[in-house]
Design a protein around this nucleic acid. Sequence first.
DNA 1: ATGATAATTGCAACAGCGTTGCAAAGGATG
DNA 2: CATCCTTTGCAACGCTGTTGCAATTATCAT
Lengths: 137, 137
Amino acid sequence: MNDPISDILQSKGLRATPVRLKVLEQFQGSDNAVSPKEIELRFDQIDRITLYRTLKSFEEKGIVHKIDDGTGTPKYAMCIDKCDEGHHHDDHVHFHCNDCGNTFCVEDVEVPYIKTPPKLKVAKTSIVMNGTCEKCQ
Amino acid sequence: MNDPISDILQSKGLRATPVRLKVLEQFQGSDNAVSPKEIELRFDQIDRITLYRTLKSFEEKGIVHKIDDGTGTPKYAMCIDKCDEGHHHDDHVHFHCNDCGNTFCVEDVEVPYIKTPPKLKVAKTSIVMNGTCEKCQ
DNA sequence: ATGATAATTGCAACAGCGTTGCAAAGGATG
DNA sequence: CATCCTTTGCAACGCTGTTGCAATTATCAT
């Protein structure tokens, strides 16, 4: 009944506090995955610890998902559709541009079925591509 | 002309020092990818900094490659065949077992061609699978 | 509204990983 | 043997992420 962003939080059982609203808002405003550090710098009066906790609870509640793009710096992006508490549907491909350093989800690429040795029980497959993004060509 | 392990080092232009021999030896002895921490604990009298530098130079010379298995802890494994200075052929699939925590290379799985939006120039594709390994079933 | 309850925040302090500078030790080479 | 360059080990630092704790704030029932 308030704004849509508050509603997202409340529907996940999280209180709509200023920090959370701000962080969530900037997730919606960007289509890149962002690192905790980037968020911290974007608002320069946010508490580092609170931010980490915010991201953690967002992840647990299925609001954002964590992306490991191979740079060593974890990034977060909003979950698109059916992410749920404790269950992420982030089986899409992630792309990391070596030029601009941005990382984003490639929605329109289908994750292929990969035939694996029958001895391995595969629960999840993560695919990260590196290269040059559209803007940097 | 000495032992094969020394030869590997010398052929890459690295001196065969005790630390390097020990580290390289244990890479050959295991088919798992190992973290710096694990190596450090395995020999309990190795200097942390020296180990990091050793791994770095091994990686630069194409002796080992770094694996990011999504756990946040980097791991290293020996390069199999055609790795070269500054050029890693590590386009195989990596598997991380959620039970035993081991990570290893799945040699016999072919990395599929994945059709991507033409706007993206893909240079490298990393695939990490999670699940249960043979031993842990 | 008001007060009780529980969640959230912010600070201090800490732990772990990885890096750099620098001096000492060790091999290679002439 | 003397020199030079590589490698090592120590000290110190920076960054990321965590925990404990007290203060604050939102929620909910009354």
